[in-house]
Design a protein around this nucleic acid. Structure first.
Length: 304
RNA sequence: GGCGCCAUAGCCAAGCGGUAAGGCAGAAGUCUGCAAAACUUUUACGCCCCAGUUCAAAUCUGGGUGGCGCCU
């Protein structure tokens, strides 16, 4: 069988509570699929499950890495799969909960990340080309070595263009094979659930939650992280709620502006998440504006 | 009461006689090693209302309405 239950959904929709209820009901343990809750010390801004919530059901892949560490999908896949195996070994059901689409993909599809990690120097060199000669110039290089990738990646998406060139040049000289894009993994039998709400209600919840996070002490948390030596150059600090508050402390904007930005960026993020989740064909959607936990539990029971 | 200024999309705003820039918010989307990232697309049969001048008006003229400022 090896059934795993995935609980996806945009930020602030209510995933944490639903995942816990599902885990409690079906003898499960939760594997977080969230690129920010992975980091230690970033508790408030990433809206981690509280200690009380984590006491109800065991959570994996939370507080896993240091905000200074480099991380990637490939690493996530490794850790998550190990956690899933561990849960299976105890005869329990893994519940994958979170909103990071790419990470989720790494568990649902056969993804071969190859071996190329890339080198800083080479990467910098490529970025320099883009900066000095323009995005188009860099894109032309990619066109030269892989017309196919070049067609798929927009010239302005420098980050991607760089990654594509680097993957080919530094890698096994082997272009990543995209033919397996939609090959679903045979490792598990997955049940996909996406929670959503009416747009207005979702945005309202997001706005309100940001205010709550501020009241919970987000400012102090960010101040503490800055004291620990983390800066906006660290990827972890590019998370929503962190980069804006750092900007406030650096005098880039007023507190009100920073809070507004956190809200706006969270709203946009939620929209991108929904766009991503819409791709999954076999996803079961629940509009929490119209249904509740009982509906979800019942549906799982009937389709298990 | 008098004088002056202003009125363009949800918001900010350019245009000053030739057929509505741009930004923000919003919407849609892309995605195989930084993904809470990066990137793409999109938003006014109409410029407060009425009349006039003109081949042509958001742009000029007159009148209204609304707002702002100053003066008595």
């Amino acid at each position: 069988m090896r059934k795993i239950i995935v609980v996806a959904g945009p930020t602030a929709v209510g995933k944490t509570e639903y995942a816990i209820r599902i885990a409690e009901e079906f003898n499960g343990e939760i594997v977080s699929c969230d690129s920010m809750q992975l980091y230690k010390y970033m508790d408030i801004g990433s809206a981690k499950p509280t200690p009380e919530e984590q006491a109800r059901v065991k959570h994996y892949l939370i507080d896993e890495i240091d905000p200074k560490d480099d991380f990637s999908v490939a690493l996530y896949m490794e850790k998550a799969k190990a956690a899933i195996e561990h849960i299976f070994s105890m005869g329990k059901t893994p519940i994958i909960a979170g909103g990071t689409g790419l990470y989720l993909n790494s568990l649902l599809y056969e993804m071969d990340f190859g071996k190329s990690k890339g080198s800083e120097e080479y990467r910098d060199k490529l970025y320099k080309i883009a900066k000095e000669k323009g995005n188009e110039a860099l894109h032309k290089i990619l066109q030269g070595i892989s017309p196919d990738s070049a067609k798929r990646i927009h010239p302005n998406n420098v980050k991607r263009v760089v990654r594509a060139i680097e993957a080919i040049e530094i890698g096994e000289n082997q272009l990543q094979d995209f033919s397996n894009v939609n090959v679903k993994t045979k490792d598990y039998d997955t049940m996909l659930i996406c929670l959503n709400r009416n747009r207005e209600e979702l945005y309202d919840r997001i706005n309100r939650r940001v205010d709550i996070l501020i009241n919970m002490g987000l400012l102090d948390e960010v101040k503490g992280l800055m004291k620990m030596g983390f800066t906006d150059a660290d990827i972890s600090m590019k998370g929503i709620g962190y980069k804006e508050i750092i900007g406030y402390f650096d005098g880039k904007y007023s507190l009100d502006e920073a809070i507004e930005l956190v809200k706006r960026n969270s709203r946009r993020y939620a929209k991108r998440q929904l766009t991503w989740f819409k791709k999954y064909q076999d996803m079961k959607w629940f509009n929490l504006s119209e249904s509740n936990i009982e509906d979800v539990l019942l549906w799982i029971k009937e389709n298990k």
